[in-house]
Amino acid sequence: MAFRLLRNPRGLSATLRPLQISQRNVAFSGIRRYTASPKDDKQKVEPKQKALSIIDSLPGNSLITKTGYITVGTGLVTLAISKELYVFNEETLLVITFASIVTVLYRALKKPVNEWAEEQIGRVNNILRKAREDHKNAVQERIETVGQLGDIVDITKALFAMSKEIASLEAEAFELKQRAAASAEVKAVLDSWVRYEASLREREQKALSSYVIERVKSQLKDPRVQEDILNQSLDDLARINH
């Protein structure tokens, strides 16, 4: 069949044409697929890069040292196995599985634990920062309060002088008050004395007048006096008539 196809170029081209078309279709469909899902294109890692990352993950700086490490490592493992320093047995499976579970747990928990730790650290940092700010504000407020009392010495001196003056004025006022009190006392005593004297004089005058009246009344009862008065009155009347 292949021979026949080779002998008949038309037949070959006729046979291959649909194949070429189908390849083009496949290519187009591939392009369409890649353009339709750009995420897949991004996620796909280049084989070269993957290989380089594996090589980079090996210890050593250059390719020679990396090769050296691998050679030495393989040699040591071979030596350990051949000399029965390490025996592959059931425990090896446990080593592999233990390393696997530790790796899995480490990879699974690393991110959430780190996030949690960052959150906790951030929270504590925020608390500390806030406390620091509060403390700073409190100290600043205190400084401002104390700053307002900067001229406290002069004010105190003035207040002291004022208090001294007030004390002396108070003393003077007290003295004056005492004097006024003493004067009032003296005035009250004198007033009472005056009142007493006045009442005494009144009483004496009353007694004197009553004595005089009594005396006059008693003398008026005397006929000689009555006669003298009558005579006197008559004389007065006679003189008036003249």
Partner: peptide, 10 residues
């Protein structure tokens, strides 16, 4: 079996 032992380890 390795997967099973790993899970058992977990």
């Amino acid at each position: 079996p390795l997967l099973f032992i790993t899970l058992l380890y977990g």
